[in-house]
Design a binder for these strands. Structure first.
Length: 474
RNA sequence: GGCCCCAUCGUCUAGCGGUCUAGGACGUCGCCCUUUCACGGCGAAAACACGGGUUCGAUUCCCGUUGGGGUCACCA
């Protein structure tokens, strides 16, 4: 039943429950587990924890797989589905029963809650005290659950690769349910059995599971299975210091895709959150695989900082291939201007990219800064642009138009000379001519260099846009 | 509340007893570059939570306090 694992081989896994999209915190845990496996040339497995039939959905499964792929976290072999192993889980539970490490418990929900309330009223720590623990009920007609007969004496120690040595008194551990009254396995049982059967050697997961590890060890020891190496990595917190959740805004990995972040930027950001390699900030996937180790993972939770993510994203946008960026941005421009871009327009976008990309921190921003290239006359002018076009601007634009129109060749060098000449002969500063030009050409007060804009737009379109706003415009 | 974990600039972090008048990055603020906005360059402000130990010597080790977080289901 157990998977074959080569001696010394590292097998990690990511085990999300499909009740929603791939959460940013889960993504980082997955990244760490992936990196650890790749670093050790081991295997990284994916298991869908769909034990909760009521909350698990196919859409969520697909969303998670999509998020994993987007981040470039490939898993080895087909993904496992926990729900398909229910029979095996029950088998293990019954083996535990046979070995005397579990017992049938006939306590009712009422008895359980009464016990809990009593403990609360007496202000003493709560732990299930089942009268069936020692008696060991036989299988009968009344509904029962199978509980783990957890040790009560001594203590359990975990040498966690991230948290260090953690000790818990066994008296703190309770007899958790293994099999529900309908015979279905609980998560606690299922994880342990699946991890064992899949040959997982290193359990790397969020530290919200640290307490569970002690309980799960009861099952592992009851079965006499080898204990995995544990590494409980801290959770990601929001800016307010609390566990990242919906109220912090975007928490799904794909949310960042739609916000206009590049996967390599998010991945780099997530890696640096709680992990460091000297002063390195920009870390390629290859270097990450080469450098990653569990020992450098910090023990304290870190706060998510969108500003730093944006900075990283800006860096990766500048690094990115122009063609790729154009492909990513074109659809965004399409929704902004209400029509799809044609092939030639996408080519124009590629040509404009070197000027466009240093000015954007997200793909969305990149799209917004690009639309002037595809708008049709007459342009709309924002408030600042309108101000630039007031006063003496129309006259200066007229002069610039004339000298630009007289140009033999339409290059950045030539147009610059023409505009500078215009300013000089008009006794104006370059900015007095260039700024109105920018406004007339782009409809905005900010844009790439104005001579690049002239070249990108082309002679005809440029002259037409200027003519629209100059003295004596028809 | 019980149990567990954590604690270096606002944020992410480097530091693993002396190299620390504590380094880097983001952000912030100046200056430079410049037709705008970015990019880039230079510079500044900004932290070892507190109290005890241990030690010749603590940011680094131990204890406590405070603060923060996680977890306490027939959910995962």
């Amino acid at each position: 039943m157990s998977a074959t694992v080569q001696p010394g081989e590292v097998v990690t896994r990511f085990a999300p429950s499909p009740t929603g999209f791939l959460h940013i915190g889960g993504a980082r845990t997955a990244l760490f587990a992936w990196l650890y496996a790749r670093h050790h040339e081991g295997r990284f497995l994916l298991r869908i924890e769909d034990t909760d039939k009521a909350r698990s959905t196919q859409a969520a499964i697909e969303a998670i797989l999509e998020g994993m792929r987007w981040l470039g976290l490939d898993w080895d072999g087909p993904e496992h589905y926990q729900s398909r192993s229910a029979a095996r889980h029950a088998e293990v539970a019954n083996a535990l029963l046979a070995r005397g490490h579990a017992y049938r418990c006939y306590m009712t929900a009422e008895e359980l809650s009464a016990q809990r309330e009593r403990a609360q009223a007496e202000k003493r720590p709560y732990r299930v005290e089942s009268p069936w623990r020692e008696v060991g009920g036989e299988a009968g007609d009344s509904p029962f659950v199978l509980r783990l007969k957890a040790p009560r004496e001594g203590e359990t120690v975990i040498e966690d690769r991230v948290q260090g040595r953690v000790v818990v008194r066994n008296a703190e551990l309770d007899d958790m349910v293994l099999l529900r009254s309908d015979g279905s396995p609980t998560y606690m049982l299922a994880v342990v059995v699946d991890d064992h059967d899949m040959g997982v050697t290193h359990v790397i997961r969020g530290d919200d599971h640290l307490n569970n590890a002690f309980r799960q060890l009861g099952i592992i020891r009851g079965m006499g299975w080898p204990e995995p190496v544990y590494a409980h990595v801290p959770l990601i917190h929001g800016p307010d210091g609390a566990k990242m959740s919906k109220r912090h805004g975007a928490t799904g990995v794909m949310d960042y895709d739609s916000l206009g972040f590049l996967p390599e930027a998010l991945s780099n950001y997530l890696l640096r959150l709680g992990w460091g390699h000297g002063d390195d900030e920009i870390i390629s996937r290859d270097d990450a695989v080469r450098w990653f180790d569990l020992d450098q993972v910090g023990k304290s939770p870190s706060r998510f900082d969108t500003k730093k993510l944006e900075n990283l994203n800006g860096h990766y946008i500048r690094e990115a291939d122009d063609g790729r960026l154009a492909r990513l941005v074109a659809p965004r421009i399409g929704t902004l201007i209400g029509r799809d871009l044609g092939t030639e327009e996408v080519e124009l976008l590629v040509r404009a990219m070197p000027e466009l990309k240093p000015r954007a921190k997200t793909l969305e921003e990149l799209a917004e800064n690009s639309i002037f290239l595809f708008q049709t006359r007459p342009l709309d002018f924002d408030e600042k642009a309108a101000m630039l076009l007031a006063g003496d601007a129309p006259r200066l634009l007229g002069l610039a138009w004339a000298s630009l129109k007289a140009l033999d060749e339409w290059t950045a060098v030539a147009t610059e000379a023409a505009v500078r000449g215009t300013a000089e002969s008009a006794g104006a500063k370059l900015g007095q001519v260039a700024q109105p030009l920018r406004a007339a050409l782009t409809g905005r007060a900010t844009s790439p260099g104005i001579f690049d804009v002239l070249v990108l737009l082309g002679r005809e379109e440029s002259l037409a846009r200027i003519a629209d706003r100059m003295d004596g415009a028809e």
